[in-house]
Nucleic acid binder design. Structure first.
Lengths: 209, 209
DNA sequence: TAGATTGTTAATCGATTAACAATC
DNA sequence: TAGATTGTTAATCGATTAACAATC
């Protein structure tokens, strides 16, 4: 609710915030009005002081002895993560993964809505997947520009990723959620979030082997 | 190739190694025999010194002026990530996401093979998805124990995640790849790798909003 | 009031980056 | 040889953790 320019929040903190949101929502459903750091920390497996520091960055203020008001803290986190600034997105690649992503129920919660999918495969074009129509990739630029879409999702193999990123950037996209293993080259004003499943799997395997 | 107990490698480094592997393979395909840190760094967008430090941890040794032998460095990274210790895994949850994961071509590269899927939905049981049969969840313990499976993949919603984790742990699983938003409680000797898509999406959205 | 919890300030820890000597 | 690149040692940076006073 205050209008000072927000300080950029570190990535580690940003990754923890959705966890707190989860916990707070559950505590709210259970009928609670307040939650302490100790309580949240125990549920998510972090230290109380870390929860406190993270919440502080969202602007949440707690009461000694009582904890944080659940309702207002939820709002603080949502605002920090931008869940209230609704965004529209396009998906490129209507294969297995793309299809699964379209069915992903978490988008809405984050304030994002996929409004169109694109592919080059004629067998896929024209299909309706979870309410989203698949168009030929040639229609991408026009649609993205016209509707001022800000987010593009790349669910394609390595070899098609960079040229798709270039296409999205030229259409005015500001954020790319990249499910390919490619390291995308984009201008500074475009944010890329990598979601390379091989990386994550490699980390797991190297730890248990 | 040496047998000293390996020092645990930090998570940031582990996450970068697959990227180097990617680059090295492409350079190899292009006919190169050596690669310098400078070259690798430019491709992945890191600093040369970071590449050097990371490669050092895999046991890779370079030659001044020449760089690193691509073949041996690939082997070093693969060994570090454990790509050569083949693992078998089971998947729990044959919905959208589970289905997409079964079609994911990256598993094999990491030395992992999903040998069975489980679900509770009778419409899914018995189906064959990308060569993997879907069984009723009741068969999980027996199969995992008998075949000494070490990795379990949870592709289920929040509410089913913890009880599935408990089941996997009781069957002797050592690593869980968790696609749910739940914070799983597991014993210390079990590794959990979280792949909560909402978290990643939240980070992206908070950066562009 | 007493005590639990917050918020702030300081200490620690680990990862990244810089500097530079060794070397092919 | 000269110069590029490695590998090592030191400096910096940022995030986590600890300590503790303020407070409801």
């Amino acid at each position: 609710m205050n209008n000072t320019t927000p300080i950029a929040i570190s990535e580690p903190t940003l990754k923890r915030l959705p966890k707190y949101l989860n916990v707070l929502e559950r505590l709210k459903e259970a009928g609670n009005k307040y939650a302490s750091c100790t309580e949240i920390a125990k549920t998510v497996g972090f230290l109380p002081i870390q929860v406190r520091k993270d919440l502080h960055q969202t602007g949440a203020v707690g009461k000694p002895k009582v904890g944080y008001t659940i309702d207002s803290t939820i709002k603080n986190i949502e605002n920090t993560l931008g869940y209230n600034n609704k965004s529209e997105a396009v998906l490129v690649g209507a294969g297995n993964l793309g299809n699964a992503l379209l069915g992903f129920p978490g988008f809405e919660r984050c304030g994002m809505k996929v409004i169109a999918a694109f592919d080059t495969d004629n067998n896929k074009i024209g299909k309706n997947l979870y309410g989203v129509t698949v168009f030929h990739i040639d229609k991408l630029i026009n649609l993205v520009e016209r509707l001022h879409i800000k987010v593009g999702i790349i669910a394609l193999p390595y070899k098609d990723a960079q040229k798709t990123a270039d296409l999205l950037v030229s259409a005015g996209i500001k954020g790319i959620w990249n499910f390919s293993s490619a390291t995308l080259k984009v201008p500074d004003n475009v944010t890329v979030q990598n979601e390379d499943l091989s990386v994550s799997l490699s980390v797991l395997l190297s730890k248990i082997r």
